[in-house]
Design a protein around this nucleic acid. Sequence first.
RNA 1: GGACGGGUGGCCGAGUGGCUAAAGGCAGCAGACUGUAAAUCUGCCGCUCCUUGCGGGCUACGGAGGUUCGAAUCCUCCCCCGUCCA
Length: 374
Amino acid sequence: MAIRFELLKTDPSGARLGRLHTAHGTVETPAFMPVGTAGTVKGLTQQMLEELGAEILLANTYHLFLRPGHARVRQMGGLHRFMGWSRAILTDSGGYQVFSLADLRAVHDEGVRFRSHLDGREHFLTPELAVEIQIALGSDIAMVLDECVALPADPARVAEAARRTLAWARRAQQHFTRIAHTEHQALFAIVQGGTDAVLRRENAAALVEMDFPGYAIGGLAVGEPHELTCAMTGIVTEQLPADRPRYLMGVGKPEDLLDYVIRGVDLMDCVLPSRNARNGQLFTRQGRLQIKNAEFATDQRPPDETCACMVCQRYTRAYLRHLYVCGEILAATLNTYHNLYFYLETMRRIRQAIAEGTVTNLTDEFQRMAGVAS
RNA sequence: GGACGGGUGGCCGAGUGGCUAAAGGCAGCAGACUGUAAAUCUGCCGCUCCUUGCGGGCUACGGAGGUUCGAAUCCUCCCCCGUCCA
């Protein structure tokens, strides 16, 4: 088995404490995976990611397929060696690009025809090709190709996408079983179904029947209200076997992380900490901070007075604002470093709370994160 | 002293009679961002009033006059800047 999931504890809140053992180290769960789409978490070095305590990164099939190409990555010894990262990697399948590059692709039962966002050239991504690419990349966890629909959506569209995703999961699994080194790599399925509870349950049940080593919940946090994201997440995790890791794809805001964890989610990823950092937004326990705002021009405090990260130990808001306003590249690095520390530290604290049975004590604090810090 | 060229909103810079509170850029002020086409994008950016409306008033294209129904745009004089000639 390429991965082994060890469920250590299930809290009365619903939160789960676990360990995901991979060929590239152990991931303490619930975990947050920094997003490194093109084989890099933008702005940070791999050494920084190690310092931050990241145990697993997410990279993207579609992007690495286009550039530098999966054959090239394989030739360079696989993605871990290529990017100098010896801890775990999960690769997204390109399914999200079906959503985010909506005007550049056409979806059919066979696969997705993409017009490259780089040079306009056409590519045809099938569930089988997505598997092959991810095998070439050598990620620890590969994802099946899925169809992610923006919400709110026409029920028929959602149903079609769910049906297609299920069919693709079957094809991906068959292909994967045939050609992958399953002792090194695992393939996770993805549950779709929009905000339709029945569809979600059916989809989950069918995938469980197919016996994947892990299950993802996709197609959420794409336009629907947070309450629905939570509701759907809960509905799906109820259907999933307790001994398999659950990955809620693409979430979330700091204040929402706990909501997902208590619904039985073990893995999450999101671009918010890294992207927003580059756009001048810092996350803190007191809420978010637009570091470029004039009010911070002479603020001697660190971004977050309760934060132990390198940035908060060393730099003031005034300096970070200065860097951002000047367009200095260091702004992106320091802001990203802090935000990812904040996310990873938040997850550490959640894990500790699960271990100690004090999860409910965190609620107030998470509510505060939704506000604006001053 | 003379000949040209030029003076536009915080800055740069379009605009040669009405559609001009005046393009565009920069700076400034805010906001957004959820499996990354994002170091990106959006809004505001003369003052003021209110019933916040493709609302009203005021001020504004070096200065002062003038022509015109109407002037950043045309005329006169003046001031300033640049280049060249004495």
